[in-house]
Amino acid sequence: MKHKAKGAATETAPGPGGTAAASGAAAGVSGPQGGTDVEAVADEELTPEELAARWEEDAAPPAGPQANFWASLVTLAIGIAAMVLSVQLDLGTPAEPRPGMWPFLVSLVIAVLSVTQLVVGRRGGRDGEKFSKLSWLAAVGFATLLALVALMPLLGFEIPAVLLCFVWMKILGGESWRSSILYSLIIVAAFYAIFILGLQTTIPHLF
């Protein structure tokens, strides 16, 4: 069985049009053309370790001390808020705990760890990523998702989904008008076929 698999699967990425993994650090969409990009394929195949090293070089700058400060502050605030709410739920005693005891302990841990992180990470460190102008793209993406959730019960999923696809492809992704509109319609039609016709789910739909 395994031999069969080996025989069949000698696939290497063809040159042009061989755009690779869709996500982050790998080759992605470049300019506004959107057509099949002719990427400069690496001559040698990078080992995973080399690849990881490359990614680290190319990675966004770490979040930095300010980010650490604010993040720790937020988690500290949530921890304290949860502690207060837990006390309101009644703590009881360790032998006979009431609903508030466990959340109180957990949120206490959050608060303590947040303070620790505040101190330990005050010089920054290597984790996280700085926000950049491009972060607005993520914010727009988030906004469109919220819009979808708001509109779905009113209009069904088809129209908001088409709009979302279009916005993501055209504005956030840099695809052409034609591809964006075409693909949006095709994709939503496919989802309709799968979720409504095929699986007979009750997702709000207009048609």
Partner: peptide
């Protein structure tokens, strides 16, 4: 959405 535009194209052979 953000990373795609930020990262330089690092081609990976599938």
């Amino acid at each position: 959405l953000e990373e795609r535009h930020r990262a330089a194209a690092v081609p990976v052979k599938v």
